[in-house]
Design a binder for these strands. Structure first.
Length: 430
RNA sequence: UCCACAGUAGCUCAGCGGCAGAGCAAUCGGCUGUUAACCGAUCGGUCGUAGGUUCGAACCCUACCUGUGGAGCCA
């Protein structure tokens, strides 16, 4: 019977054949222990010299780390095995003997592992992280589909920048200039005016020389946008969504969280509603904490964000930032033009901003004024202004960085492990 | 772009002015319950690159290259 390692528990006492790689091997004269992996899990195969043919014994002896094979054996429950099951080997067929596999069972440095990312993905730790990433992706699709959103995909190649602040990757669009998208938000606003509630999930590119544990050059972003939705409703969607993905990971990835040593008691506290503080209050708080390098009107630096987030053990919304430090499309707080209806969601444990969101300007005249202020009268922005011209409505949305969420939920030291093939400053290989 | 730290065997590191080292990996041998197995042996080097100081440089100095951490910017 062909089986995967994850299915082996259904065949106790029976004989199975598994396609696998050799993760490690320990031998002892007349007994060999083969640590096998097949992508679904790990199992130990036990080869006994006086119970198998000479050929099987010699083939087992020839196996090296990451050699590929089909292996047959009898499934047995065993308390000594980490998974509870072992395979008493009856036969094996070598596909390929691998020579000099670079990643050994000992420790390695970051540079070496990143150079071998295509092989590093085979390790149990990377497996656990990427399975949790997959669970977050699945939970994202489920959450938005179950709440009346439809997925609409914004373009990746664009003729102009969405916010004008960050550096974009430049490319050619036949004989014209084009850029890789840093955000699909403006397009999602158009989609929201067509479908009501929409979300996107796709790659974003930022050509910034950022070099920290929180930054990727290419990352995946989830960007919901909702018509007839104000700032307050927007925050509620955000806290419900984040609580949902954390709950789904806790429910469905217990083994993976254990494999990477995540303290799940910290995740169990992540339940909506989340605390909120205004920018005004945050500035006051920072002054009390002894920060003298920030004044009202400045955007927060990393140390400021960390100080605020450390004060809470759940994510915290910082709301109503000064108009001048935020994007041109954010709606001012009624009766107070100097701050806008926006919020950043700061993750606990120093993981920084995982969501940025706002209510958007719906007033045509105000948006025209912003176009003047931000010099957006280029024809490529005309369509965005027209969204306010033909049946404008209050609307809001946000963007969540997938890898930052993965890094936080997994408790990773660095965001690079949250992406299968991370693009970092000076690294586009493999 | 700026600041800090680091490049020595395939990998992780020690050596810090006087003979180039260890553990792991690899290769060979031993062991019937191993879990990063263990034990013995063998193999393994342009000390990042270029220049300088010195009787003598892996070690001190200068420049460059590469990497890592951080700042700014952001999700």
């Amino acid at each position: 019977m062909n089986a995967t390692i994850s299915e082996v528990k259904n065949y106790v006492g029976g004989e199975v054949t598994i396609g696998a790689w050799l993760a490690n091997k320990r031998s002892s004269g007349k007994i060999q222990f083969l640590e096998l992996r097949d992508g679904t899990g790990f199992i130990q195969g036990v080869v006994l010299k006086n119970e198998v043919s000479e050929q099987v014994w010699e083939d087992a002896k020839s196996l090296t780390q990451e050699s590929s094979l089909y292996i047959s054996g009898t499934v047995r429950e065993d308390k000594r095995a980490p998974s509870g099951f072992e395979l008493t080997v009856t036969g094996l067929s070598v596909i390929q003997i691998a020579h000099d596999y670079p990643i050994t069972p000992k420790e390695h440095g970051v540079e070496f592992l990143m150079d071998h990312r295509h092989l590093w993905l085979r390790s149990s730790r990377q497996h656990a992280i990427l399975r949790i990433r997959n669970q977050i992706i699945k939970a994202t699709y489920d959450f938005f589909n179950d709440n009346g959103f439809i997925k609409v995909d914004p373009p990746i190649l664009t003729g102009s920048s969405a916010e004008g602040t960050t550096d974009l990757f430049h490319t050619k669009y036949f004989d014209r200039d084009a850029y890789l998208s840093q955000s699909g938000q403006l397009y999602m606003e158009a989609a929201a005016m067509a479908f009501g509630k929409v979300f996107s999930f796709g790659p974003a590119f930022r050509a910034e020389k950022s070099k920290t544990r929180r930054h990727l050059i290419e990352f995946w972003m989830i960007e919901p946008e909702m018509a007839f939705c104000d700032h307050e409703m927007n925050l509620r969607v955000q806290e419900n969504y984040v609580s949902y993905i954390v709950a789904q990971v806790l429910k469905n990835c217990a083994n993976d969280l254990k494999a990477i040593g995540r303290d799940t008691t910290k995740l169990e506290k992540i339940k909506a509603p989340f605390p909120r503080i205004t920018y005004d209050q945050a500035i006051e708080f920072l002054k009390e904490q002894g920060f003298d390098d920030i004044e009202w009107g400045d955007d927060f630096g990393s140390p400021h964000e960390t100080a605020i987030a450390e004060h809470f053990d759940v994510p915290v919304f910082v709301t109503e930032y000064p108009t001048k430090v935020k994007a041109f499309y954010m709606k001012p707080v009624p009766g107070r033009e100097d701050v806008v209806l926006c919020a950043d969601l700061l993750a606990p444990e120093g993981y920084g901003e995982i969501i940025g969101g706002s209510q958007r300007i719906d007033d045509l005249d105000l948006m025209k004024k912003r176009y003047e202020q931000f010099n957006l009268n280029d024809p490529s922005y005309k369509w965005y202004l027209e969204l306010r011209q033909y049946g404008t409505v209050p609307h809001s949305g946000f963007g969540l960085g997938l890898e930052r969420a993965v890094a936080w939920i997994c408790g990773l030291e660095h965001i690079r492990e949250a992406s299968p093939f991370p693009r970092l400053l000076n690294r586009i290989y493999p």
